[in-house]
């Protein structure tokens, strides 16, 4: 049960990363690798700020702004200096590696016995349970700390999902979505599509850094390596979400991204339980994303070929 709660919590925390990537990858169709660096940026900045006594919420908010700045720079590299989107992302990600080391002063920072964004939820639960450190949930004894983290990440991701859903349906959000679809049309409607790209990447990486900030508080440390492969994980989650819920509306797409992230974390937890070597995890994820990207067109081709064979047979 603890395993499931852990997977759920991490899934909910990383769903902020998926929501961020939804904006870059799905809305403006920008393959943004900055993500690998900005999630670590969020984690390292928050860790340092909390360690020096900042309020966890304020530290987390600062992570959002730092991530936005990183995303905006990637956007400017691409739109203003005409660097290919992948390369712009790689440049920013590489630069962020050194920046993150600078921020932390070493390769990792532990966060033990410090407050976090789930402190309030924990306190509340402790009062409710009358001071016990475990609570009975559907027949299981669950540590209050774990439950607090689960509830606060749930509240946070649901809140952000609602805000994002609203934002994408506004006049501004509508044009943002059109930017990935048809930049020419966006210009013809009097909107600078380059500005939209920079803004979207800022918002996207802000959410990613937010996810990193909360992740660092949940797992109790920030590490300079923690971002490696995160972009592919986010992709995998989005793809699973799309297969799960579809993309018939913005609300469904957002819900899908969150559910996809949680399911992906559960699958990983199960795979690890069954004895998958943790070192193989990124390879497995990469193969999965490859298959998910290729499968739809492969099925289509297969279907066409079958149809051909069938019509051929009928003709004879």
């Amino acid at each position: 049960m603890n395993l499931v709660i852990g997977a759920f919590t991490i899934g909910l925390i990383l769903s902020l990363l998926s929501l961020g990537m939804l904006i870059s990858f799905k809305m403006i169709k920008f393959t943004d690798i900055t993500v690998d660096g900005s999630i670590t940026l969020g984690a390292s900045l928050t860790a340092v700020l909390i360690a020096t006594g900042w309020n966890p919420w304020l530290a987390t908010l600062m992570a959002f702004f730092a991530g936005s700045l990183a995303g905006a720079i990637t956007g400017v590299l691409h739109t203003k200096f005409k660097i290919q989107e992948i390369l712009a992302g790689i440049l920013m990600m590489t630069a962020l590696y050194s920046i993150n080391l600078r921020i932390m002063g070493r390769s990792n920072i532990p966060l033990l016995d410090t407050g976090s964004v789930s402190s309030q939820a924990e306190q509340l639960l402790t009062t409710v349970s009358g001071g016990a450190d475990k609570m009975n949930v559907f027949g299981w004894d669950v540590p209050v700390a774990d439950l607090g983290a689960l509830i606060s990440s749930l509240v946070l991701s649901v809140l952000l999902a609602i805000v994002l859903n609203y934002f994408l349906k506004t006049h501004f959000g509508t044009v943002l979505r059109a930017t990935g679809n048809n930049p020419q049309m966006v210009r013809a409607q009097g909107v600078n599509n380059n500005t939209m790209v920079v803004f979207s990447l800022a918002l996207s990486n802000g959410l990613v850094a937010l996810s990193g900030a909360i992740l660092a508080q949940y797992q109790g440390f920030a590490d300079v390596q923690m971002g490696i492969g995160m972009m592919v994980w986010g992709l995998a989650s989005i793809i699973i979400g799309e297969a799960l819920v579809g993309k018939s509306s913005i609300g469904m797409t957002i819900t899908g991204a969150i559910l996809g992230t949680i399911l992906f974390r559960l699958l990983i937890a199960i795979a690890l339980r069954w004895g998958l070597n943790p070192n193989d995890l990124k390879l497995v994820t990469a193969v999965f994303v490859f298959l998910a990207l290729v499968a739809p067109s492969m099925f289509k081709n297969l279907g066409k070929r079958l149809q051909k064979v069938r019509s051929h047979a009928n003709n004879q």
Binding site: K169, T170, H171, V175, Q189, G190
Partner: peptide
């Protein structure tokens, strides 16, 4: 809203 502002209201 061609050429006008894009407010944060449901479109």
């Amino acid at each position: 809203r061609r050429g006008q502002s894009r407010p944060l209201k449901i479109a």
